[in-house]
Structures are given as C-alpha cells and as structure tokens.
Simulated assay, not measured.
Amino acid sequence: MGVGKTTVGQVLAERLGTTFRDTDTDIVTAAGKEISEIFIDEGEPHFRELERQAVRTAVAEHPGVLALGGGAVLDEDTRALLSGRPVVFLEMGVAAAVKRTGLDAPRPLLAVNPRQRWRELMEQRRPLYTEVARAVVSTEDRTPDDVADAVLDVLELKNA
C-alpha cells in the first residue's frame, strides 16, 4: 500500500510505449464505488472475489503494464496465473509507508492501529509477493523515474 504501483506503472508503460492498467481502478469502475465502500457495504470476501475476477480479466486482455492491488496475491489461483510472468514486487518499509501515506488514507485494512496492521499485512504477504515476483525493487528514497529504471534493469528491458 502506497508503494507507488500506479505511478511507477504509468512511467513504465510510457517508457515501453505501451498501455497501463490498474486492477483496483477496474474494480472501482465495475462496482461503481470506491474500494473502501465495497469493504464496508459487502465485506472483504466480496471485494477479494471482485479482485480475482479483475486480475483474471486484465491478465487475459491487457498486453501492457499491469498494476495489481496489494492483496491480489492472497489468492492461490492469482499466484498461479502470475507464475512465469515478468512480475516485480515493489517494496518499502513501514517508515516510508508512513511518510508516503501517513497511514491515514481511506484504506480499510488499516482502519485500526495502522502501523501495526501494516506490519502484519506485510509479514503475511511478503512471502507471497516474493513467490510470484521475478524481482524485488525497493521504492524507498527513490523517485518514480528511478524505480522505473530499476525495474527495467532487473527485467533486462533497459534498451527496449
């Protein structure tokens, strides 16, 4: 959360001469409401099902750069779908997360004790992120352009 997936993804798409798509945006568009409202109105399980469908559709339809929501890897089928693809895990520590988001943004999973909950989520998700990722790139103390450079380097697309 707050790592810069959307911003970096847009920079990468521009540099690669392709399009960008964000599955969180797809979910909001399809549901007609913000993710925080989906969590409140229908609950997390319903949101996760929408997320599974959005990722499945996006991977099948979109040939460009794709940003997935931070919890998408919780689904085993999604992890299998991502296997072998050029997935990059953008990471940062809690101090950087606080600096970037203040951990007070409308993020339903961080509603109570955001710093502790962020750490718990990362402990749960980090092994799943690294399972599907071809590479890990830190976003700490880097501009989106610097992160995009690092992603292109680790995917060996620098001269693409």
Rank of each mutant, 00 (worst) to 15 (best):
F47Y: 14
D153I: 01
V3C: 11
L121I: 13
A67G: 12
L16Y: 01
V136I: 13
A105G: 14
E123V: 11
L82G: 14
I27C: 08
H62N: 13
T130H: 09
A30S: 13
Q124Y: 10
E123N: 12
K99W: 03
F89G: 05
V88H: 08
V28C: 04
R85D: 05
T6F: 02
N159L: 01
L74Y: 01
R100G: 06
D75H: 11
G69P: 08
A105S: 13
G70S: 12
T19G: 13
V137T: 08
G71F: 07
K33D: 02
T23W: 06
F89N: 10
A148G: 04
L109I: 05
M1F: 06
T25D: 15
G102F: 10
L155Q: 10
A95Q: 12
K5E: 05
L12P: 06
Y129R: 08
A80T: 12
L109N: 01
E37I: 00
D24F: 03
A54T: 03
T6Y: 01
D145P: 00
M122T: 12
S138V: 06
V65E: 09
A150S: 15
E37R: 14
H62S: 12
D104N: 15
D146K: 11
P114Q: 11
F89H: 15
M1K: 09
L155S: 11
L109K: 09
L128Y: 06
R142V: 03
A96Y: 01
R115E: 15
A30G: 05
T101D: 08
D104P: 00
T6N: 04
S83V: 00
A72Q: 10
V88D: 11
E123Q: 14
